[in-house]
Amino acid sequence: MLRWALIFFIVAIVAAIFGFGGIAEDAASIAKILFFIFLVLFILSFITGMLRK
């Protein structure tokens, strides 16, 4: 999931450099959403792992 967030972030940067504002904005918002989903899942996994030990 983090990989997809990075891919969309890079697409957003490249689109912004070439002047595609709408595409850059959409790709950046998708990257943000995927990053926060990854972060929540990582924290839940970390807490679950700590509770099992």
Rank of each mutant, 00 (worst) to 15 (best):
M1H: 08
M1F: 08
M1I: 14
L2N: 14
R3L: 10
R3G: 15
R3F: 13
A5R: 01
A5F: 06
A5W: 02
A5G: 13
L6F: 15
L6M: 13
I7F: 08
I7V: 13
I7C: 05
F8C: 06
F9R: 15
F9N: 15
I10A: 05
I10G: 02
A12H: 01
A12G: 04
A12V: 01
I13N: 11
V14E: 04
V14P: 01
V14W: 03
V14A: 10
V14M: 06
V14K: 03
A15D: 02
A15H: 01
A15P: 02
A16P: 05
A16L: 09
I17K: 11
I17W: 07
I17P: 01
I17Y: 07
F18D: 06
F18I: 13
G19A: 00
G19W: 04
F20M: 05
F20A: 07
G21D: 08
G22P: 00
G22Q: 00
G22V: 02
I23E: 05
I23W: 08
I23L: 14
A24C: 04
A24P: 01
E25C: 13
E25I: 10
D26F: 08
D26A: 12
A27E: 00
A27L: 04
A27R: 05
A28D: 02
A28H: 03
A28G: 06
A28I: 07
S29N: 05
S29P: 00
S29K: 09
S29I: 07
S29C: 06
S29F: 09
S29M: 14
S29G: 03
I30F: 12
I30G: 05
A31P: 03
A31F: 00
K32S: 08
I33A: 11
I33Q: 06
I33G: 03
I33Y: 11
L34R: 01
L34F: 02
L34W: 01
F35P: 00
F36I: 11
F38Y: 11
F38D: 02
L39A: 10
L39Q: 05
V40Y: 07
I43A: 07
I43K: 01
I43L: 10
L44K: 09
L44M: 10
L44W: 12
S45L: 08
S45Y: 08
S45G: 14
F46L: 14
F46I: 11
F46P: 03
F46W: 06
F46A: 12
F46C: 05
T48P: 03
T48F: 10
T48Y: 12
G49V: 02
M50C: 14
M50L: 15
L51Q: 05
L51N: 11
L51F: 07
R52Y: 15
R52D: 15
R52A: 14
K53W: 00
K53M: 01
K53G: 03
K53P: 02
